[in-house]
Amino acid sequence: MEFDQTSLRSGEQPRGGDQTTRQRVARSILVNGASTAVALAERLDLTPAAVRRHLDQLVEEGAVESREARTATRGRGRPARAFVLTERGREGFDQQYDDLAVQALRFLSETGGDDAVREFAERRVGFIEERFGVVEAAHPELSPAQVLARVLSEEGYAAAVRDVPVGEQLCQQHCPVSHVAHEFPQLCEAETAAIGRVLDRHVQRLATIAHGDGVCTTCIPDLPQQHDPQDPDQQQASGLARTTSQQSATKKEQVSS
């Protein structure tokens, strides 16, 4: 049974319950990223044995590949395997841009130059700034990064936010324009710039699907801490810094004399 890419793009239900369930397995990996059979079974309310049967078929079709799962501790027995979508697997889902879009951008580049392509890319990601305020007002319980993730998910990016030591990380499990962005990185650059504008800080793109990574990741650093003269912790840190500076100055004076 082949991976039915046509039915996935059109949203039609394929013939046969197995294929429908297989699509659910593939879509769960698309939305949630690398997943073990056990995690998929819990997420989809299936047995691990049933999930493994569908995963084996997806692997055979070239839509999914397995890799050793990252775990904090490893016990006895074989290491767990995590499953991720391959490029062919991603092609089974909605792609907003195809060969026609690539040809159109090539023509735009040849006739208008890089500036024309860059202007097109900036216009395309206009939805980020247009939708951000609306979603933020409708969901005041969300952080700015979570608002952004929802805006992107509504456009097919399957985005989520996770905490990291330096702030937050935006993870986009799917990129509707990855094929085009591989040849025209201006699309990624415009998207990153728009993310920085709505969050009002400098962000850094760490990985992109367009360049062969499994997920697009963007680092969103914490804002610098504002100085509060009433904060005892900041007062203590400031006092320690002054003492250290004074001691250093004293030592320099002693050495020079």
Rank of each mutant, 00 (worst) to 15 (best):
R81E: 08
D56F: 01
D115F: 05
P79H: 01
P144I: 07
A181E: 05
D163G: 00
R43Y: 01
A34P: 07
Q19D: 12
A145L: 12
A241S: 12
I209R: 03
E141R: 06
R81I: 01
E119A: 15
L187W: 03
L148E: 06
Q235G: 06
C188G: 02
H174I: 03
V51C: 02
E60P: 08
F107W: 14
V134Y: 05
L142F: 05
H182N: 11
A237T: 07
H182A: 13
Q5G: 07
D222F: 14
R123M: 11
V215D: 03
C216L: 06
V134C: 03
S238E: 11
V25I: 03
H139F: 13
E12W: 13
V31P: 08
S143C: 06
V84F: 04
L85Y: 01
T217I: 04
I195R: 00
Q13M: 07
Q230W: 13
L44T: 07
Q172K: 00
R106I: 12
V84I: 15
V64A: 05
G62L: 03
R74G: 02
L148C: 02
R123D: 08
H54F: 00
E130M: 06
G113C: 04
L240Y: 15
A249D: 12
H182S: 11
D56Y: 06
A207P: 12
E130Q: 13
E253F: 02
G17Q: 10
A101H: 05
A149P: 05
Q146R: 06
Q246A: 15
Q173Y: 07
T192V: 14
E91G: 09
G212A: 08
R201T: 15
Q235T: 07
P79K: 12
P176V: 06
L46Y: 10
Q186C: 05
Q186T: 01
R201F: 09
V134R: 10
L85H: 06
F3Q: 07
V180P: 05
Y157T: 02
R124F: 10
A101I: 01
L223G: 12
G33S: 04
R76V: 05
P140Q: 11
L105C: 04
V147L: 09
Q103R: 12
D231W: 11
D4W: 15
T20C: 02
D228F: 03
V84R: 03
T36K: 08
Q235F: 10
F93H: 10
T192C: 09
V215L: 07
T73A: 10
I128T: 09
A121G: 10
D94Q: 11
D233R: 14
Q5K: 15
R15E: 12
F107T: 14
A160F: 11
A159L: 01
A39H: 08
A207M: 09
P14A: 11
R124G: 03
Q234N: 10
T73D: 11
Q236L: 12
C219E: 15
V135H: 05
A49V: 11
C171R: 02
L40P: 00
A50F: 02
S153I: 01
T73H: 13
I220E: 02
E65N: 01
